[in-house]
């Protein structure tokens, strides 16, 4: 085994992989959110439609998209792998009584939260990504497809609930990633925990607000465009 693969197979290498992919996914979420916020511009979806068309064509975006798929799969696969290895490390005999001092609910349930998010991603992608890509009928604009979906109450509720799951996952995930990178030390601990909490609340809240407002047909966003020429 060469040194690099030795590093990757070590417990810390695995953790670093989780950390890097996780942070990359958070970065994606930020970009995704900015794009989505265009749904709330009161222009009947003009800005959003233009945005999706550009995204579909741009070669750079395509490359990033593949990186994203890999990151999701890697993060999921490693997550499962690590969970199983950790379970084995705990041993066959469980504690009869187990206190949970010092730990947060989120930290103890990362695997569950992650699995739920994975399911959500599946549903989400078949809802939109698949339809945008393959189920796209001439004449139906992207915006209209989104709007149609979010006029169904159960879909809105499903999306909003999924964001709560995401919030808990991020609450532990963000600061944990910095701990794994060795940056959460001394004064930085509070900083990263603070930023992490901000991200964990802010990102999912904004994501959740989009379907809810669309359900009630409220479009409060000032006109902005991600791509200037779109």
């Amino acid at each position: 085994m060469n040194k690099f693969s030795q590093f990757l197979h070590s417990s810390l290498g695995n953790k670093l992989l989780m950390s890097f992919t996780g942070l990359f996914l958070i970065l994606f979420l930020v970009v995704h959110l900015i794009g989505n916020l265009q749904l709330l511009i009161p222009d009947q979806g003009e800005a959003f439609n233009a945005y999706v068309r550009i995204m579909e064509k741009n070669i750079l975006i395509k490359v990033v998209a593949y990186a994203l798929y890999i990151a999701i799969l890697l993060h999921t696969y490693k997550g499962i792998d690590i969970t199983l290895r950790n379970r084995k490390a705990r041993g066959g005999q469980r504690y009869a009584v187990k206190a949970v001092s010092g730990t947060t609910w989120a930290s103890r349930n990362m695997a569950l939260l992650g699995s739920l998010i994975f399911i959500f991603i599946g549903v989400h992608m078949s809802n939109f990504w698949y339809k945008f890509k393959f189920g796209h009928h001439e004449g139906t604009e992207f915006y209209t497809m989104v709007d149609t979906s979010f006029s169904e109450l159960w879909i809105v509720v499903f999306y909003a609930l999924a964001q709560i799951v995401l919030a808990y996952h991020l609450l532990h995930g963000f600061q944990s990633a910095f701990q794994t990178l060795g940056l959460r030390d001394g004064n930085y601990t509070r900083l990263f925990k603070g930023i992490g909490a901000g991200i964990a609340v802010g990102l999912p809240l904004l994501f959740a607000i989009i379907p809810i407002l669309m359900y009630f047909d409220i479009h409060p966003m000032p006109d902005f465009r991600v791509f200037p020429g779109q």
Binding site: I82, R85, N86, S101, G102, T103, S176
Partner: peptide
């Protein structure tokens, strides 16, 4: 055969 750190914080507590 120890497990990996998931940054729970139980150890410190």
């Amino acid at each position: 055969g120890f497990g990996m750190c998931s940054n729970y914080g139980a150890c410190e507590a």
